[in-house]
Amino acid sequence: MNAIHREEQQALARAVLEIDVANHPGVMSHVVGLFSRRAYNVEGILCLPVGDGRQSRIWLLVNEDTRLAQMIRQVEKLEDVIAVRRHHAEHAVFTELEDFFRP
């Protein structure tokens, strides 16, 4: 990504979604598929198990878009999704990882 493009990208409003899910193969496809079928790009993804491993937490970094509210409702509808929380783009979960993503 060139520098100008990168700045443009950052100028876009972003949102961070925190999604608690049942931890099993396939749950990631369910969540991400809702975005891909709408040609809604997911800019960042993080996922790790929480607690005893029966649940995982997925963090998504997405662009603000008029469709975001609908997206969240669709995600909430998935059987494997326990909860969805929405944060602003500066949430530490992605900013603290920036060192790992230097070009």
Binding site: P25, G26, S29, H30, G33, R37, L78, E79, D80
Partner: peptide, 14 residues
């Protein structure tokens, strides 16, 4: 079948 049916089912199980 699981992957194919994700977007066309309410839910699916393998």
């Amino acid at each position: 079948t699981y992957g194919l049916s994700i977007p066309i089912t309410k839910h699916n199980f393998l």
